[in-house]
Design a protein around this nucleic acid. Sequence first.
RNA 1: GCCGGUGUAGCUCAGCUGGUAGAGCAGUUGAUUUGUAAUCAUCAGGUCGGGGGUUCAAGUCCCUUCACCGGCUCCA
Length: 656
Amino acid sequence: MQIKFGEQQKEFSEPVSVLDAIKAFDRDVLKKTIAAKVNGEEVDLSKKIEPTDEVLSIEPIQTDTRDGLEVLRHSTAHLLAAAVLELFPGTQLGVGPALMEDPRYGFYYDVIAPRQLTEADLPVIEKKMREMAKKNLVYRRDEIAKAAILDIFKDRNEPLKCELIAEKVSDSASVYYIDGSPFIDFCLGPHVGHTGKLKAFKLLALSGAYWKGDADNPQMQRIYGTAFATQEELDAWLKQREEAEKRDHRRLGKELDLFSIQDDYGQGFIFWHPKGGAIRTDMENYLREELQKRGYGMVFTPHIAKRQLWQTSGHEENYADSLFEPMGMPEKFGEDTEFRLKPMNCPFHIGIYKSHPRSYRELPLRYAELGTVYRAELSGTLHGLMRVRGFTQDDAHIFCRPDQVEDEVGLCVDFAYDVFKTFGFEKFKVELSVRGGADNKGYLGSDEAWESAEQALVRALNRRSIPYERIEGEAAFYGPKIDIKVEDSIGRLWQLSTVQFDFNLPERFQLEFIGDDNQKHRPVMVHRALFGSVERFFGVLIEHFAGAFPFWLAPVQMMVLPITDRINEYAEKIGRELKDAGFRAEVNLKSEKIGAKIRDAQLQKVPFMIVLGDKELEEGKIAVREKVKGDIGQMTLDEFLELARRLKSTRALTNG
RNA sequence: GCCGGUGUAGCUCAGCUGGUAGAGCAGUUGAUUUGUAAUCAUCAGGUCGGGGGUUCAAGUCCCUUCACCGGCUCCA
């Protein structure tokens, strides 16, 4: 039997384990090797290779690769389950995968223990895991017939595993044991050879999770943890996690006095304080400028409307759970008249479209609105600015002829990229969501309509050479869409923009335009949002910039700091002039030492500090301190204003 | 909505097994007049999330409710 290992190839006449085969080629490689690929298939090192005529190629899976880390984390999840079984006999196991995409955690295992676990159990479980790790317990794999596996788990009283096996296994499958522990799992592998390979892991959180992710199923307890090849990597990861916590927008929102959410006024409603409001104003002004350049008409529409509108639009049937209840005042407006808070802006923009007959010459019509909508989100889903019950969409609806769709979608994508770059995002991920599932059930519109809509979206992306991922089953019921995610400064992805086709509303509202053939035609409707929600985008920006907003957005752009009381008058004069020049400047007249004033401004992440002492007063100059660079020396007020004006007008991301 | 956790001053937190609330920062006032990340002192600030119960006595124990945090589900 011929086995290839990298460039080398050797002949083996007897069955050989993967481990021994690698040993024969290169003993050093073994140190970091915890599994291997044989002809591309991931296997345990203990796997025996039977002689065969074909040439086999073996590739090691090492701990410093993604695949290796996955094996490590997966094996650690098993160790976790084994420890739980030791401590809580009778525990039922669910699933326990490695998490490679989720930056929060490394793996989890879902369990139902004989009693509810609490967070206090985590250190105990972790301790047991360490004990077991030290014993070098062997991961042993067995290939067993389906009936036999079912018997094993029936005996162990694990109906959930039986359910999985019944669904996934056709004739036989592998099960894993950790020798010397009560652990048996039905699993593909591969795993590390023994528990001694698991050196750096930590349990992180306990939460609820529905069996198979279905809210109608019983809820299990999910234990989250993470694992790395070395303790140093784990420590570094934990440190980075702490850093990420420091940029939590809820924390910074409080520290920088940007916004609040008040119990007494209602969950999920945002109060923008003056500093947050200053940022929002600049965000919106920027957007308005761009909208105007790009041929959008700004519209304004009410927050509530007759209930019937939402029946016509289909929101009532499709999103009943998240609409606020209708409001009626029969004695004032009559029995049949009820109103609803709007969950979307579309019907209103449609109202403007329908306000008079449209000609094909008018199209495309682009209506944009910063429209505030209200949705009755479940209380458990609310999260700072990211998930709220009242928020403002930077919404727009484009009404166009079918032949214009591709161009319009492309322009939306261009617009989104321009906006994101302005806010300092450089990496993007684009998703094309289309129909999917059994017979494409639950989706409106003909097959032809879906096909041509998808093609239009694809062409718009291809023309711009934008790579995208096609996801089936993620489309809205009314049409396919393009979602744009951005990567922030610490590598997290946020879904912000969406460009959506709509087959539903033009039909339901009987939209028409008169074509060049003098006949009535149905226009196509595109929904699009760039920020998505202004609140959420603000939250993402806070975290992206860690609260240190670029000059043009900074709520306080410059802080004037007199060194002694003698300078206060001069400081106020400088402050006045900065404000007159259109900047957000403040003057700190407190009786503090300059170091304390600087520290204050620094903690508030103010881009520029204007330090004024006797020297500056005498020479009629100002000393400028930049937030990151520190003291950048004396200059005249005009010189500084020139710099400030440039930073503002170019929307510069740094104060260079 | 579901599972687990938490709720004490504006913020961050202390308060052991029940004996009747404390610190730092922020704020106030005063002193100080200071050259690039914290000057000193002073005063003020809390029905311990709300309601109910157990007890001679509840921030502490029990029930209930609200909110928040970590997840799950959902997210037009």
